[in-house]
């Protein structure tokens, strides 16, 4: 059976909130190392990869591999009943047809309990190759969101150019052009505002802003976001969580004919 307790329901609430507009039905794959999810959007352009490691739960127990087939809209309805600070316990039998969720308030003796019906989901899994990216940019997640939303007002696509001079996000639209350039920057007092650019070779890639703006819904999970690029391969956008847990998004590039 599965028993996994989070000290703060907000972690799961934020994760589900960040991905529910990209994927509707998906499996939460549970094993002794934790709970993982890999799902593509309907157009097969974007992929979500979540790993909530066993260490992120206290306690965590999972005797056998269990796939929890969940409709994220339904899960959202149930999670809305949890306060951010509630402790959240997930429970399921070995061959479950429902997922039990318990929310416990720390402030008082209120306990709420829900059972969510599960579904059989035949999910297509993709093998994601280990990639040495040519450019790895770490920046405040709020800054990345701002750049993406600002540029989306002008264009459907953004071109990301990473060079020794910095990283430039630029777009061309019917009403005009826009560009934002960031350089490496260290803030000793507020490291969450740091911008770090690691580069082994220059990169230039174009992506759909619609998807990037969607990924930015995960900004609530982490002050910083890491974006990894190599020419002509999908972009990786990673929000790191505590205990090596993470939420990653991959986005296929737009390439000239």
């Amino acid at each position: 059976m599965l028993e996994a307790k989070l000290d703060q329901a907000s972690i799961l609430k934020k994760v589900v909130d960040a991905i529910k507009d990209l994927v509707q039905d998906c499996n939460f794959d549970c094993n002794d190392s934790g709970i993982a999810l890999q799902a593509m959007d309907n157009s097969h352009v974007a992929l979500v990869s979540m790993a909530l490691k066993a260490e992120s739960f206290q306690p965590y127990r999972c005797d056998r591999n269990i796939a929890l087939g969940l409709n994220l809209t339904s899960l959202t309805k149930v999670l809305r009943a949890a306060q951010n600070e509630d402790m959240l316990t997930l429970r399921a039998e070995d061959a479950p047809d429902s997922l039990n969720l318990v929310f416990e308030s720390k402030a008082d003796d209120r306990i709420s309990e829900y059972d969510l019906k599960l579904m059989d989901i035949d999910q297509e899994h993709l093998g994601i190759p280990e990639t040495e990216y040519a450019a790895t940019i770490t920046l405040p997640s709020s800054e990345f969101r701002r750049i993406c939303t600002d540029l989306m007002a002008l264009s459907e696509s953004v071109t990301i150019d990473a060079s020794k001079d910095g990283v430039k996000f630029s777009c061309t639209g019917d009403i005009g052009n826009g560009a934002v350039t960031l350089r490496s920057h260290t803030n000793v007092d507020k490291p969450e505002l740091n911008v770090d650019i690691e580069l082994s070779e220059p990169v230039s890639l174009t992506f759909s802003l619609k998807y990037l703006v969607n990924f930015c819904k995960a900004s609530a999970l982490s002050h910083q976001v890491k974006i990894c690029l190599s020419n002509e391969v999908p972009l990786l956008v990673e929000y790191a969580l505590e205990n090596q847990s993470h939420l990653r998004f991959y986005l296929a590039p737009k390439i000239g004919d």
Binding site: H44, L126, G127, Y250, A252, P253, K254, G256
Partner: peptide
């Protein structure tokens, strides 16, 4: 002109 690629081209079956 650029064309949106899909992930299947880059990520194979495991």
């Amino acid at each position: 002109p650029t064309k949106q690629q899909t992930l299947g081209k880059f990520f194979g079956a495991p």
